[in-house]
Design a binder for these strands. Structure first.
Length: 107
DNA sequence: ACAATGACTCCTC
DNA sequence: TGAGGAGCCATTG
């Protein structure tokens, strides 16, 4: 927010935007990439503001279980699952089944 | 400055 | 196996 370096949100947005199509990532993973003291909660908090930016594929970010925890914040909530399924993901019971195979970044 | 909240994660029962 | 509580960092009132 302040002019101090890039806010953690800026970093998080950058990372999320770098997620290639057909891939997904987790909050904790992004937090690790961002480094610093940023925690998984901050990633989710940042994405909460991200919904204002269409360039941020927030639907590709799920919790470590692959569960669509943030689907309720979409317009409509089903949009998240739709987008994921549209990219070739198998979403069942609000959970991505093959997210581990398409997890990003590649370890 | 303090307390409360949140799209998380981990540990324990 | 499933449910509950604590820890975690940053933002907001």
């Amino acid at each position: 927010m302040t002019d101090n370096r890039e806010s953690i949100y800026d970093k998080i947005y950058k990372i999320v935007r770098q997620i290639p199509e057909g891939k997904v990532s987790t909050y904790g993973r992004i937090a690790e990439i961002v480094g610093g003291k940023t925690g998984a909660r901050m990633v989710g908090y940042a994405l909460n503001h991200a919904h204002l930016d269409e360039t941020i594929p927030a639907h590709r970010v799920v919790n470590r279980n692959g569960l669509l925890t943030g689907k309720a914040h979409f317009h409509p909530p089903e949009l998240m699952q739709q987008l994921l399924e549209n990219e070739g993901f198998v979403v069942e019971n609000d959970k991505i089944m093959n997210f581990e195979e398409n997890l990003w970044p590649e370890i």
